[in-house]
Design a protein around this nucleic acid. Sequence first.
DNA 1: GAGCCGAATCTAAGCGCTCACTTACCTTTG
DNA 2: CAAAGGTAAGTGAGCGCTTAGATTCGGCTC
Lengths: 201, 201
Amino acid sequence: MSDVRTSTQARGDRSRARLLDAAVQAFSAKGFHGTSTRDIATAAGLSPAAVYVHHRSKEELLHAIAVRGHEIILEAVTEATRTDAAPAERVAAAVRTYVLFHARSHTTARVINYELAALTEEHFREIAGMRRAIDTVMREVVEEGVRSGDFDTPDPAKAATALLSLGIDLARWYRDDGSWTPESLADFYADLALRVVGARP
Amino acid sequence: MSDVRTSTQARGDRSRARLLDAAVQAFSAKGFHGTSTRDIATAAGLSPAAVYVHHRSKEELLHAIAVRGHEIILEAVTEATRTDAAPAERVAAAVRTYVLFHARSHTTARVINYELAALTEEHFREIAGMRRAIDTVMREVVEEGVRSGDFDTPDPAKAATALLSLGIDLARWYRDDGSWTPESLADFYADLALRVVGARP
DNA sequence: GAGCCGAATCTAAGCGCTCACTTACCTTTG
DNA sequence: CAAAGGTAAGTGAGCGCTTAGATTCGGCTC
């Protein structure tokens, strides 16, 4: 095993990651169709052709970004709700986690929420499945709270949709240079989530 | 005055409107950069060059769509809150109006909420001003309710942002062929808004 | 009311340019 | 030397937009 810093393998891995990172930044700022493969290569410090050494196509870059992002979110939300705490605590934890991700990783979040129409039909269906899974996690916690009598809402499915909606839209308007921190937003939205589902005081 | 159906003037007006309409559909489905001027012209039943008879550029089409859409929303929300009803009723009316627009006109709403990055800096600033005005209307109703003691929320500005956020994101996920009607969503979100601002029962 | 003009609508053709992606080749490293 | 990383120099296709000119039509003249 050789020095990691000079290994060909490690160099390749680093370039691959730099390209993905550059693609996230560019797709977020200019959109998939507004970004050229030259933009991505240049931002990664490589020649235009280098994109195709590590990725099959521009669309495959978007797909990789989308899969990774949705995996992270699904795991985080699942983790947050997989406790034996009361429904109120679990909903608050799920929303807090979800909001923190969308605020802290708003660049990635913008790409994986707003650029999905540029995916191939097959890739889109794959991502749509992951999104349905995230939706299901949130809806089931709300439904459970309603069944147990902890929550009171006229429509648990709409309530769950609204909670996810708030997190997603956060990625659209959130600015790093604003005065609202991810943590203060997570606090506010966690409290708001309990109002939305009608959690008993 | 000649027959309207055959007048040159009327033909021109109709083409202009058809181009704008085609642009809304295309921008919504494929994004600004994913749409070609040929797409727009073809959808409007005209040759590619006809776009430039009625509009200066592709960006100017987007600008016209954005101005129109924001004018409608600002007027609707202002109208809904300009009554001497109690704050709770005014917030509910504003949210109801806002949600109805974003559900019924989700195609337009998608364009004017998600394609603004493609505007020139000057046009973007113009639209940003209109968006701030909409934000102000909503925030002021919430703040007034808090001052009068009708509402109870730890952060009126965040609450107002959340209410607008819900409406905007609705345009992203709403489908005409879904089972949720604009009216049922408006009802649900109006009730939800009162929970969010902590309206006294 | 026939004949014509000017303005507006619209298109065929195509301009210069950038796009995503490929090929043929060199370099680095184990 | 084999395998992987990387690039210079393209490819054809499609882009936004322009130009030159044909067509349409209301209104004016006599």
